[in-house]
């Protein structure tokens, strides 16, 4: 990983700060505003910053633009927009979060998409669909291979810039919809007089579970806000909704066991790949992820026995 990122200039005795290379573009020069960070990517997470040449400035755009005001945080842009613009932007934000869950970045090494604006641009939407169609089957196969091959890499987990921009602004649509679907599907197979209890029970369990997992990450020193974590965990319930759907359709037990294990692993992979790098102290990532695992496993078992 580090070998690819070595300096490409053969004469290391020339001081880089004094002589700017000919083929350098504006992004390679030192930014006086961001002097502190400009050195950091070269030493820390080299692999990601060198693989995409414009990675650092794009990430910083969300910082600097808070001052200049060009992205959606700029108040002037959003107060007078039409209703459709609002709806479209929020739907795209929801979709970009779903994408993170459908393709857990941790499993695929983060190379499948470039997360530059979290799908908030109009042009990105169509290419996402093309990606979805194109990589659907090969992506699923790759996931199975990756599950076996890719062992947990603590370095990737601890990468601070793990969270993509699309996940920074949270919403509650995913948690709400998936929680409702899960409770509804699980209550289908319950006895008639127990339907209400099962529904309320699952509903409450999901929300309490999300709160507990979030609390655990917060207590371990994670730099994630409460609502953000609940949002992410809610979105990663999607594979478990599939499991609940299979339960509601009363698929035979023999088929369900391996499928459910895969689905729980999918949920866990998505949850870990998004939440894992939320700044938990280095040797406590396992402790932070464990309750997440218990949460998914519990819901999976609930799907299984219903």
């Amino acid at each position: 990983m580090a070998s690819t990122s070595n300096h490409q200039y053969p004469s290391p005795e020339i001081e880089d700060d004094l002589i700017d290379p000919d083929d350098a573009d504006l992004n390679d020069f030192d930014d006086p505003l961001a002097r502190n960070e400009s050195r950091q990517p070269l030493t820390g997470n080299i692999g990601t910053s060198s693989s995409s040449a414009g990675g650092r400035p794009l990430n910083e755009q969300s910082w600097t633009s808070r001052i200049g005001g060009e992205d959606r945080s700029a108040p002037v842009n959003t107060i007078d927009e039409t209703v459709w613009e609002t709806l479209r932007r929020d739907l795209l934000a929801v979709w970009s979060k779903m994408r993170e869950v459908l393709y857990p970045k941790y499993l695929f090494g983060g190379t499948m998409f470039d997360y530059q604006s979290g799908g908030s641009e109009g042009g990105g939407f169509r290419s996402v669909y093309a990606n979805l169609r194109g990589a659907g089957i090969s992506g699923a196969r790759e996931e199975l291979a990756g599950l076996a091959g890719r062992v947990m890499d603590p370095e990737a987990l601890l990468n601070q810039s793990n969270m993509s921009p699309g996940l920074r602004d949270w919403d509650m649509w995913g948690p709400l919809i998936f929680c409702l679907l899960l409770s509804l599907l699980l209550s289908f197979r319950a006895k008639d007089d127990q339907k209400d209890v099962v529904f309320s029970g699952v509903f409450a369990m999901v929300w309490i579970g999300e709160a507990v997992v979030t609390l655990q990450i917060k207590l371990l020193g994670g730099n994630i806000s409460f609502a953000q974590s609940v949002c992410i965990i809610g979105y990663t319930l999607f594979p478990l909704v599939i499991a609940a759907l299979l339960s509601a359709l009363s698929i035979p037990v023999v088929v369900r066991i391996p499928v459910y294990i895969v689905l729980i692993a999918w949920s866990l992979a998505a949850g870990v790949s998004i939440l894992g790098g939320s700044g938990v102290v280095k040797n406590r990532v396992g402790i932070a992820v464990y309750p997440l695992f218990v949460f998914y496993l519990g819901l999976g078992c609930l799907c299984f026995i219903s």
């Binding site: 108040p75 609002t86 949270w170 409460f226 609502a227």
Partner: peptide, 23 residues
């Protein structure tokens, strides 16, 4: 997102700082 903006011209939202997690 819609009524507050169009009826009284107000809007609020919550932002999270990606580095520290403060909202």
């Amino acid at each position: 997102n819609i009524a507050g903006r169009r009826l009284v011209g107000l809007r609020w939202w919550n932002e999270v700082d990606p580095q520290s997690g403060d909202s």
